[in-house]
């Protein structure tokens, strides 16, 4: 089966005043339909840069990035992008934000927007402005806005990083819900191991300076996952070990 997204030997170098810094080195990755891929790594490993390249927001790289066999040349609606902050238009209501440049008077758009509001559980807030929403609600509107464009892949750049732990848990469950309903391929960048193991079908572990893929850990646990189960904690430890070799020495601490 042809992958939705195919990244092959991508190199990216940052040319600064203090010479050149390699950001990504020979990164290859394929994302298939229905995959939930999480990219995890220390800060400076280029995981956000990789996501921007996939989105078409960053075009200065070597190598090949293809969506359904076509080279990515600019941002398109086929690649939904969720930023770390919700980035809603403050002058639009929830439903206007989801529709954005489309007209709510179009019955097709209206219906799709209503369904998405249902999906992200924001019924009753259609006419609310972003300032009236909590961080989690606003991020759900941003997800609905991306989903309205029926993307082939949804790219999420640390989308829950700014939320409190309680809301984050809820948002992770909401995202799984959306993924299971829509079957949209997801690529999520995070620095939270727990989040990675809880959500994804596989975890891509990256290393910094230069950014390379160090390991790919498949997560074969059935959904919904329990964070306290033995299998879960073992996989978390495994990811942690791949992330940082020093951690192996302290394995006992993490495998409780």
């Amino acid at each position: 089966m042809q992958p939705v997204l195919e990244i092959e030997r991508v190199n990216k170098t940052f040319y600064g005043e203090q010479g050149t810094t390699p950001v990504l080195q020979s990164v290859s990755l394929a994302v298939h339909e229905g995959d939930f891929t999480t990219i995890i790594g220390p800060s400076g490993c280029g995981k956000s840069t990789l996501l921007k390249i996939i989105a078409g927001l960053d075009l200065s790289y070597e190598g090949s990035v293809q969506l359904r066999g076509k080279r990515i040349e600019r941002p398109t609606q086929e690649k939904g992008f969720i930023f770390q902050e919700h980035r809603l238009f403050p002058w639009m209501t929830v439903e206007q934000n989801i529709a954005a440049d489309r007209s709510l008077r179009d019955p097709g758009v209206r219906k799709a927007v209503d369904e998405l509001i249902e999906l992200v559980k924001l019924g009753g807030f259609e006419r609310a402005y972003p300032r009236q929403l909590s961080g989690g609600m606003a991020q759900r509107v941003a997800i609905a806005r991306a989903l309205l464009r029926q993307p082939e892949v949804l790219l999420l750049d640390e989308p829950f990083g700014a939320l409190d732990a309680f809301t984050r848990g809820h948002m992770q469950e909401a995202l799984l819900d959306i993924w299971q309903t829509n079957q949209t391929a997801m690529v999520l960048v995070t620095h939270d191991i727990d989040e990675a193991v809880f959500l994804s079908t596989r975890v891509v572990v990256m290393d910094a300076r230069p950014g390379t893929i160090k390991a790919i850990v498949p997560i074969d646990l059935p959904y919904p996952r329990s964070r306290t189960s033995r299998a879960f904690t073992e996989l978390r430890t495994l990811v942690l070990n791949r992330l940082d070799h020093r951690a192996e020495l302290e394995q006992d601490v993490y495998s409780i």
């Binding site: 927001l57 992008f81 930023f83 440049d101």
Partner: peptide, 12 residues
């Protein structure tokens, strides 16, 4: 940052 959003959503 909102111009980035407009790019991603392909605003005319």
């Amino acid at each position: 940052k909102l111009f980035d959003v407009a790019r991603v959503l392909e605003f005319s």
